[in-house]
Nucleic acid binder design. Sequence first.
RNA 1: UUGAUGACAAUC
Length: 421
Amino acid sequence: VMTFNTLIKAQCKAGEMASALCLLKHMSSEFALVPDEVTYNTLMAGFIQKDKMEEALELLKEMKSNGRTPDTVTFSILINGICKQGRFEEAVKFMEEMLGSGLYPDTVTFTTVINGFCKRGRIEEATELLEEMRESGLYPNTVTFNALINGFCKQGRIEEAVKLLEKMRGCGSYPDTVTFTTLISGLSKQGRMEEAVDLLDAMWGSGHYPDIVTLTTLVNGFCKQGRMDAAVKLLEEMSENGLYPNIVIFNIIINELCKQGRMKEVVKLMEELRGTELYPNTLTFTTLINGFCKQGRMEEAVKFLEEMRRSGHYPNIVTFTTLIHGFCKEERIDEAVKLLEEMGENGLYPNIVTFNTLINEICKQGRMEEAVQLVKEIRGSGFNPDVVTFNTLINGLCKQRRMEEALKLLEEMRGSGLYPN
RNA sequence: UUGAUGACAAUC
């Protein structure tokens, strides 16, 4: 069983859930092995990682009907799935249900929910949960604090994030490479590159050495500031420390070249990547496709979509939305619609960004009634309009001098817990 | 053998 669990885990890690399920079938049918808690937990975690909650719950059922009892790990996995969907009330309910079945949420369970709150910018609730955790006798660890620090950084609240370092020590945990990188990322996003580099320098003395993620974070920071030279210099320095560029670094550079409209160089770079160990991934291709879309060069964008598929990478929702936006911008609506249909055929569903893209297009055509109607439908299908949705609609109305309606939407926006930016 | 934290792509 352990052997199969290991194999199943490997498939899950590779995102090959169909093969993982295949292994589950085989272990009982061909080898008369009985899957255990670990088997099911592994599979459920694999599905959650791919945002496939339904399938995870299906496995939970199967697990129970095969006489296996969900344990603390099972609950943590499912709670993670619920948090990823932003359904925190249910997550908390799940934690209570745990207690009902004699299981106690542990540090990982709490950290999962704390991280969920942080990811959605709900820091205050995350902080409350930290207190609750301590009250119930559990010790937050480095991961718990890292999640919180990341939450503050993502909101641009770096000073508060730094303050958490002291609290961290007070709780007997210590910062690690992730802690430093999280702070460096926060500083970089604010354009505070000098401080970010200071922190990098401090890492060497702390015993928590920068890793490839730290490096990519800084390279991205420099590129976004338009300081490619600084990025390249850092890459050279770091290669002396044994840190070499990976595909993420190239994705960042490709993105920057695209932003500068240097498409010839990008295409050349892509060719140079062939025959190296750096394999372009979905993000590489999507970045490139976006570059061509932004230049209005849709034929080339589509050409790379095909190349992407040929090299075994599936376009995802971001890829499709990028192309749909590109076609809309060029007023080639028929082709945009065709892509929407193709998405469905590929088992991909529009997300809020896709909808915002469509709403924007409808607004630009001055069809405000239809735009508002579409938002209603989106709501009905379980999506929450976000800040961009409202901005798009408000902008559309303002362009038509329909200020009363725009102001009404502003209120509606506030009413649904969104902060106008 | 299973669960939580940091980097890169799309919309206003």
